[in-house]
């Protein structure tokens, strides 16, 4: 790896950052994703043995006979030794075969491929709310720190953070879909149907981000960097948006990277409240029906989702802050 790192022109500046060591970064990241997925697969596999439910019974249904259950056990290989089952499971997972959903009578991978885009869309909507609303409020609050807006934003953030997401979702549904029918009551209507779930899923995050952004910018506004910018006659808006916000992006994006997991966890609840046909609703239904393969599939794909988005967040951080080396 060459140690020198020269960025090309003003225009290609951000790309220059990535040129630092993209190949090593990518290799490291892929290794880390593979390793994490291996642990996730192993863990979910072992988890199924700790759940007090018999998959064969789940397939056959409550009215099935003991013989039917025994046949299914035989067919599914559930009587094989644990290592053999583990090897078979891992081998199938590697080829993208996540098993068969008992409750939906379909291949898990097909189901997930169908549902994942909805969750991705919802996560994107929630991110827009989190980052868009949160950062805007944070910037405004920081620009007049201690002022009326700052103090009301703090109060509002504390309130919103303490509200459970499903309750926010129900209130939004009641007010904006039932009493004032602006948005649909549920389902996958796009784009209107996306608004309320995104808001319900993202609003708590927005409250967090507003505070993180505000703190980061207030810290930066007290530095010599800002004093120097004022000393060269830069207007407040440029100081705030071009310099301070950009320098504050680090903590926000770091938080974002941690947040994707929570976002998916929240999606389970919010998708259920809004009947949004995504991965979260699927996981919830799988849980209710003891559909272990489907639940495992959701967990694995959810983990992959988080890992990939974390990588995206790291790249974004390097784009915004040249000191971050990939």
């Amino acid at each position: 790896m060459a140690t020198t790192r020269m960025s090309p022109g003003f225009e290609a500046r951000s790309l220059g950052v990535l040129r630092a060591g993209p190949s090593r970064f990518v290799a490291r990241r892929i290794a880390s994703i593979v390793l994490t997925l291996f642990f996730v697969l192993t863990f979910t596999f072992l988890l199924t043995f700790s759940i007090p439910t018999d998959p064969a019974r789940a397939v056959v249904g409550p009215k099935g006979t003991a013989e039917q259950v025994a046949t299914v056990r035989e067919n599914l290989g559930l009587d094989d030794p644990l290592p053999a089952q583990y090897a078979r499971y891992m081998g199938r997972a590697l080829t993208g075969d996540l098993g068969y959903s008992y409750s939906q009578r379909r291949a898990v991978s097909d189901l997930i491929a169908e549902r994942l885009p909805y969750t991705a869309l919802l996560a994107l909507g929630a991110l827009v709310v989190q980052v868009g609303l949160g950062v805007s409020v944070g910037v405004l609050a920081a620009s007049r720190a201690g002022g009326a807006f700052d103090r009301s934003a703090l109060a509002a953030a504390l309130l919103v953070i303490s509200l459970p997401g499903f309750w926010v979702g129900l209130v939004l549904l009641y007010l904006l879909a039932y009493r004032l029918p602006v948005f649909p009551l549920g389902g996958n209507d796009f784009p209107l149907g996306l608004v309320l779930p995104s808001l319900a899923l993202g609003i708590a995050g927005a409250a967090w981000y507003s505070r993180i952004t505000r703190e980061a910018i207030v810290d930066i506004l007290n530095t010599d960097m800002v004093r120097a910018l004022r000393a060269k006659g830069m207007p407040p808006r440029t100081i705030l948006l071009k310099h301070s916000l950009r320098a504050a992006a680090g903590p926000v994006i770091t938080m974002l990277a941690i947040d994707f997991g929570f976002l998916l966890g929240g999606a389970v609840v919010i998708e259920t409240v809004f009947s949004w046909p995504g991965l979260g609703l699927t996981a919830y239904q799988a849980m209710q029906r003891n559909d272990v393969p489907l639940l495992m599939g959701c967990v694995i794909v959810g983990s992959l989702f988080v890992l990939v988005l974390n990588t995206v967040a790291d790249v974004a951080r390097a784009f915004l802050d040249p000191r971050v080396r990939l």
Partner: peptide
Amino acid sequence: RRAVLGTRMSMILQDPLASLSPVWS
């Protein structure tokens, strides 16, 4: 004052690393 600062009067601070913006060339 913003028009004066930088054009007719300018200032150098103690620590150039702290006074330059880290995220712009």
